[in-house]
Amino acid sequence: MDGSSTLLFDSASLFFRAFFGLPASLTGRTGEPVNAVRGLLDFLARFITEYRPERVACCWDEAWRPAWRVALVPSYKAHRVASGDVEEVPHDLNRQVPWIRATLEALGLPVVGALDYEADDVIATLARRADGPVEVVTGDRDLFQLVEPTRPTRVLYVARGVSRHERVDDAWLRAKYGVTGADYVDFAVLRGDPSDGLPGVTGIGEKTAASLIGRFGDLAGIAAHVGELSPGVRRALTASVDYLGPAAQVVTAATAVPLPDLDLTLPRAPRDPDAFAHLSDELNLGGSAQRILAALAGR
C-alpha cells in the first residue's frame, strides 16, 4: 500500500447497530425487515463521504467465537451462545446477513474475512499492513488497542451513535481512561469486559487498572512488583494469576492473519450494477441505495 488513507469497517458491529436502531417497518418486497441492510448502507455512505478514503474493507467474522480463544478462556462470549457454537442472533437479523453480503459484493466493496478469525483480527492485520493513515469504524472498545500515532491509526467509535461518533486517538484514551492504545490490552484484561465474558480481576476497576499500568508499565511489570502493592490488590492479582496470561492472548487482536494480497481500492460505481439494481428493487433500498452510490461517486 502507498501512503493513502484506509477505512476499515467492523461489519457485524455496524449491522447489529443498524438492526436495533432502525424500525422493522423498513421492509422489502416480500414484507421481511431490511432495516439492517439499509442502515448499514447509510452508515457506510456517511463515513465514506466524510472521510474520503482511498481504500476500504468491510471486515467479516468468519468465526465469531474462535475455538482457539475459547480454549484459552472458556467463558469467552459463552453467554451469547444459542446452542452448540451458534451465536444468539434475532431471526429477523439473521435473515438479512446474506442480503448484506450480496449487496456489498454487488457494490464491489471488499468483504474480508479469514477462517478461524474474528473481524477484529482482520482489521488489526489490515491496519498493520497499511502504510498510510487508518481509521477503524466500530462500536467495539477492544479495537482501541490499535490506536497509535506513528502509522497513524484512529478508531471512529460509534457507541454514542453514528452521527455522534468519537475520534479515538491516544489523547482521547488518556482523557477517558488514563492509558494509551499501546496499554489498552493490559488495561482491558485487568478491568474485564462482561460483554465478551471476560471477568477481569475482582476488585480492580478502570481507575485501579490505569494506575497500575501507569506505575509499572504492563502486566509483566505489575507481576514483577506485586510485593509493592496494597494487600487487597496483591490478593486479587494472585488469585487471578492463571487468568491474566490467557486473557491477554484472547483480548489481543491477531495482526498476522493469513490474508491474500487484496485490492481495497474504493470503487466509484457498483462492480455488478445489474445485481445491485435487482437487490435495490427486491429489498426496497430506496434512498439508502442512492446515498451509497453518491458516496462512491464522490458526490
Rank of each mutant, 00 (worst) to 15 (best):
G3C: 06
G3Q: 13
S5N: 13
F9H: 11
S11C: 15
F15R: 04
F16P: 05
R17N: 01
F19Y: 15
F20Q: 07
G31K: 05
G31L: 07
N35A: 09
A36G: 05
L41G: 05
D42W: 02
Y51L: 15
R52N: 07
R52I: 00
V56T: 11
V70H: 01
R80F: 08
V89W: 06
P90Y: 10
L93E: 14
L93I: 12
W99M: 08
A102T: 03
A102V: 02
L107D: 08
G108D: 10
V112E: 06
A114T: 00
E118Y: 00
D120K: 11
I123S: 03
L126I: 01
L126P: 02
P133D: 14
P133A: 15
P133L: 12
E135V: 02
V137Y: 11
G139Y: 11
D140G: 11
D140L: 04
L146H: 09
V147K: 03
E148N: 13
V155S: 12
R160I: 03
V162H: 14
H165I: 04
H165L: 07
H165T: 04
D169E: 14
D170N: 15
D170P: 02
W172Q: 13
W172F: 15
R174P: 00
A175L: 12
K176M: 13
K176N: 12
Y177L: 06
G178F: 01
G181Y: 13
G181Q: 14
G181F: 14
Y184L: 11
V189E: 02
S195M: 04
V201A: 06
V201P: 06
T202D: 06
T202W: 01
T202G: 03
G203R: 05
G205N: 02
K207M: 03
K207P: 01
A209D: 06
A210R: 05
I213H: 05
G214Y: 06
G217M: 14
L219A: 02
G221V: 08
G221C: 08
A223N: 05
H225Y: 01
G227P: 05
L229A: 10
V233D: 06
R235A: 14
L237Y: 06
T238N: 10
T238E: 15
P246C: 02
A248G: 04
T252N: 04
A253V: 01
T255G: 10
D263M: 01
A269M: 07
P270K: 00
R271E: 13
D272R: 12
H278P: 00
G287A: 09
S288Q: 03
A289W: 01
R291K: 14
I292C: 06
L296Q: 05
L296E: 04
